[in-house]
Amino acid sequence: MEMTKKIAIPKFQENVAPCFESASYFMICEADNENEICSQIVECTGCEGFGRVRLLQEHNVNVLICSGIKGFYLDILESSGLTVIENVSLNVEDALQLYLDGKIKSQVHSNNLEELSCEIPHEDLVCWAKELFESHGYTVSIQNDEETPFPVDLVAEMNCPVCHKPIRIAVCCGAHTYRADQEIREFHHVSSSIYQVKVYVFPGNPLIKQRCREYDIQLIDTDSESANHDQKINGRIPLLDSPIPGHEKAFAGNNAKGE
């Protein structure tokens, strides 16, 4: 038996509207497993989100594909059984087709606290990271004076093997707060003119890896076997896996994390 479902997409011109709460038009279509059966455009005036929630409920919508949506309305819709696929910035027809083809799906929200926290005490991470950098030839200093901006815990230094200029690495060991994403964001804003590289030390998971990538911060994953104190140093600038601006030559043939 084929299941039909109703899909709603807030529409602005031919694209998915940027904001669910202020969208004036919704395309509501009925589809079986893969094919669109029929669709209609529904107008929604007024300037608040509840009107839109009500509209979706009145039309018995099962899936909402949208771009921006306030967490408040997302929670309401999800608690009433709707599937919400957010951050879709496409042409409405393309968005619908991609959904019907199974190419866009509802994602786990990035506020998943389990993925953003760790059980390891912060002091353990600092001790472990200090030893790790030292065992790879860095001179490491602990930043514990009050003037040091949160969240730099360690500064690891070594001279570039090519130009012999000093390379300073700011190291933030996680678990200062209960949310790694907050720490990564704050760490990102630490002055780039003082440090050439920023390294975050934390048990890696896809979300943490993604956040570090987004903010151009290198992650040393405490769960990775390659982050090992006993490993031989093969790279010329060990432990770093992407080139430092101005020191690219030193990275030629650099084998990340001593692998």
Partner: peptide, 14 residues
């Protein structure tokens, strides 16, 4: 590289 309305999701983007 993204359109501004895909980043800001503002109530005046339309």
């Amino acid at each position: 590289g993204n359109k501004c309305y895909d980043v800001f999701h503002s109530d005046v983007c339309e």
